[in-house]
């Protein structure tokens, strides 16, 4: 099945996963790219997005699988036509004739920007580095069966903390994103829990890249 890579930025980050699927379905229609439909009582256009992104999180590496009805259109044309039919903040970066199997999707790189309106306190970066060097950091996770506690450390592949200007700290991390998966915002939850004195005023989160088991870029 063909796959496309897209980014979700600006105000588009507030669009929910379900709404985004609808947005793409309409964009395909506007672009004159007819999608195949699912079978059944209520046929739906077949599009699926690999890893649902939380509302508010920015991404430069979203993957969407789609299936065009009958026609064969070059990937480059699909990309151009879709980009003319998409709203601000959602942009197709590339289109592939066939994507790798989703089950091989394993890691993702994320970037957290921690904002401190009154400046970053001394020692913040060191304390955070130390926190993520522990063997065990327990954070609550909302699952299907209510709230469960989990140790996030085994799911962090690597992580760096650095100060960016007077008022920001940036955390770059590579984390597991499938079986098990770590929502990057849990890194921020860990800071709130273990280092409450350096709880930031606001956190921005961005998904940067996705990888397979061998840590090769996944497409």
């Amino acid at each position: 099945m063909p796959r496309l890579l897209f980014e979700k930025k600006g105000n588009a980050v507030w669009i929910s996963h379900l709404d985004l699927m609808r947005l793409f379905q309409r964009a395909f229609k506007r672009a004159g790219l007819p999608l195949t439909h699912t079978q059944g009582f209520n046929p739906r256009p077949s599009v699926s997005i690999a890893l649902p992104l939380s509302v508010g999180v920015e991404s430069g590496c979203e993957l969407l699988d789609f299936d065009l009805d009958g026609v064969i259109i070059p990937c480059k044309d699909i990309m151009e036509r879709l980009n003319c039919a998409l709203t601000d903040g959602v942009r197709v970066l590339d289109v592939y004739e066939n994507g790798a199997k989703i089950k091989h999707l394993s890691y993702l790189d994320c970037c957290l920007t921690l904002e401190y309106d009154r400046g970053v306190a001394a020692g913040t970066v060191e304390n955070m580095k130390a926190l993520f060097c522990r063997d065990e950091v327990i954070v609550e996770k909302k699952g299907k069966n209510g709230i469960v506690e989990q140790n996030i450390i085994p799911m962090i592949r690597n992580l760096t903390v650095e100060q960016a200007g007077e008022k920001e700290v940036k955390i770059h991390a590579r984390v597991c994103c499938q079986n098990p998966s770590l929502n990057p915002m849990q890194l921020s939850a860990a800071i709130d829990k273990y280092l409450p004195e350096v709880k930031p005023d606001f956190v921005r989160c961005c998904r940067v890249e996705v990888y397979d088991e061998q840590e090769n870029v996944f497409r």
Partner: peptide, 11 residues
């Protein structure tokens, strides 16, 4: 709830 209704930017 439903933040997208406050930002505009629609098609």
């Amino acid at each position: 709830q439903k933040p997208a209704r406050y930002t505009g930017g629609e098609w």
